[in-house]
Simulated scan of single mutants.
Amino acid sequence: MTDCVGGMSPGPAARVRSVSGATAFVKACGPELNPITPELLRDEARILVVLPDHPNLPRLIDAYDDGEWVALLIEDLPGAVPDVPWSTEDLRRASGVLSAVGPVLDGIVSDWVEPARASPIFSDGWKLLADRLDQVDPWWAKHHDELAAHAERAVALIDGKALLHWDVRADNLIFGDQRDVLIDWGQVRRGARWMDHALLAMDCAMSGSLGPTALEFFATEPALAGRDPADLVSLMAAAGMTFAARATEEAPPGLPTLPATRARWADNLRLELEAIL
Rank of each mutant, 00 (worst) to 15 (best):
G107Q: 15
F243G: 03
R42Q: 06
S234N: 08
T261E: 14
A162S: 14
R262D: 14
F25E: 08
H54L: 00
L77F: 12
P222Y: 07
L215I: 05
I174R: 13
R262K: 12
R262E: 13
S110K: 00
L163F: 00
I183G: 04
P10A: 06
D184Q: 07
T248I: 09
A239L: 14
S18E: 13
V109K: 14
A170P: 03
D184F: 05
Q135F: 03
D137I: 07
V49R: 15
W194Y: 15
L147V: 04
C4F: 11
L51V: 01
V26N: 06
L200G: 02
W112S: 00
P222V: 02
R117W: 10
R270F: 06
R59N: 00
G208T: 07
G160N: 12
P82H: 06
G96D: 13
D111G: 08
T248F: 01
Q178T: 10
P103D: 07
E274V: 06
V5K: 14
R17Y: 02
D184H: 02
I108C: 01
M195T: 11
E32I: 10
G67E: 10
E39F: 08
E114N: 01
C29A: 08
N56M: 12
E68S: 11
A247M: 07
L91Q: 14
D106K: 07
L215H: 02
P229K: 07
P222F: 04
C29G: 03
E114P: 02
S209M: 10
S87M: 03
C29I: 03
L163W: 05
G186M: 01
P38I: 04
E44T: 00
S209E: 09
